[in-house]
Amino acid sequence: MIVVTGATGNVGRALVRMLTEGGHAEGGHADGRVSVTAEGRVPVTAVARHIADADVPPGVRAVAADLAEPAGLRDAFDGAQALFLLVAGEDPRGILEVAKTAGIRRVVLLSSQGAATRPEAYGHPRLFEAAVRESGLDWTVLRSGGMAGNALAWAESIRTRREAAAPFGDVGLPFVDPEDVAAVAAAALRDPDAHRGATYTLTGPAPTTPRERAAAIAAALGEPVRFTEQTPEEAHALMARFMPLPVVEGTLAILGAPTDDERRVSPDVAHVLGRAPGTFAAWAERNVAAFR
């Protein structure tokens, strides 16, 4: 069995779907490999703070639990061989100790590219990465760049006013489709031998600017969307409502003055999946209903 934390999020929801498509597996292996049927499906426990059976596909066990409270994860982890872990909570070692006690042998961590490029701002992901690497479990670390799904923050303003606002309107970054992040995670969970000890940086196929992303949503809608460039101060005030200040400052630094590494398109999605990563335009077309 595989445990997927953050199962109601953009990546977690897609990952649960990918793991359970096509058939149902039974049991597991003592070495941590997960049983997979010929149809490619595995048993999954979906974990989120607020989750119910209606939130997951048939046959998936839904467990409401919080990564901020490791002791409450025991039921969710019981009987599992592998874990997809978000950076959430303050005690990664506590989470991993509960996982080991429950019999989990493998962890795939969804971290951030900023853990490598902005360590002073992204200390929390770095703590999780260190805990995973020192856990004694088999591990794979996924360092995601900015995600295309972040554009859903524009959903209300585009629906109601056909307007999108962001700072640094003409600075491009290779945002990654959350479906590609989920697909890489699924590959790492299903085939631990191929991805044991790997750290992958996940990006899209080309840099896009906020102005270009707004235009891609407009093209998917078939209607114009006005782009308004925020000042860094305006963006800081909005982001500080729901993000820690060091992360706000690190994120704005990436958005406004990305390093060469942050601008670079990584080969890792293509390496793992055997295909090019999806474009932002394709993401916009697939998610256009959110902006109508």
Rank of each mutant, 00 (worst) to 15 (best):
T5Y: 05
G6P: 06
V11W: 01
R13D: 08
G22D: 14
A25R: 13
A30E: 15
D31V: 04
G32T: 06
V34R: 08
S35I: 00
A38H: 08
R41M: 06
D53C: 05
A65V: 02
L67D: 06
G72H: 00
A76T: 01
D78F: 00
G79P: 09
A80M: 06
Q81T: 09
L85C: 03
V87T: 09
G94L: 02
G103P: 14
R105T: 10
R106A: 02
V108N: 11
L110C: 12
A115V: 11
A115M: 11
E120P: 10
L127Q: 12
A131F: 00
S135Q: 05
L137T: 02
V141C: 11
L142D: 13
S144P: 07
G145R: 01
G145K: 00
R161P: 00
E163C: 01
P174Q: 11
P174R: 12
E179L: 14
V181T: 09
V181Q: 09
A185V: 08
L189G: 07
R196K: 10
G197W: 07
A198M: 13
A198P: 01
T201W: 05
T208I: 13
T209R: 03
A218V: 07
A218K: 11
A218E: 11
V225D: 06
R226P: 00
P232E: 12
P232N: 10
H236E: 14
P244E: 12
P246A: 12
T251E: 11
T251V: 08
A253S: 14
I254C: 08
G256V: 07
A257C: 04
R264C: 03
D268E: 01
V272H: 03
L273P: 11
P277N: 14
P277R: 13
E285W: 01
A290T: 07
R292S: 14
